[in-house]
Amino acid sequence: MFSLLRSMWLVFLHMFHKRETYQYPEERAPLPARWRGRIALTRDPDGGERCVGCYLCAAACPVDCISLQATEDEHGRRYPEFFRINFSRCIFCGSCEEACPTYAIQLLPDFEMAEYNRQNLVYEKENLLINSEGKYPGYNYYRVAGMAIDGKAKGEAEHEEPPVDIKSLLP
């Protein structure tokens, strides 16, 4: 009984505490760098799209709000033909970012995405793709993957030997 009264008293005393609220539009909360907000598709250091259309983000998405179609350019580089996120479904859990093997999809510290029209919450690739490497500068998936693309032939990636000459008799 006493504890009840004591907690009532303590709560009452909160009347005289400083308020924690950020008065949002006038006053902005500092967002940490790892804040899970707006989702963006980033680019390689050389400016190419990082997304290779592997579908892992879509598979990881618990609300299934990512859909894409992978395609390939004439030199073998994969990219998404379309990439759509339905932000009216997104729960900003960050699973897509964790699943992404190329650091392409990243959640950025920005949450100001509200719309009056729900349809505007459907983002296509042109709305998602940004001109930046995002949180992981320097990473370039195709420099470690074995596929040949324009400007990187077989054996030219990191930690790769030149292609085997299968006609060689040397050991």
Partner: peptide
Amino acid sequence: YSGRTAMLAN
């Protein structure tokens, strides 16, 4: 199966 809530959202 993925993308149920996005594949026709356009």
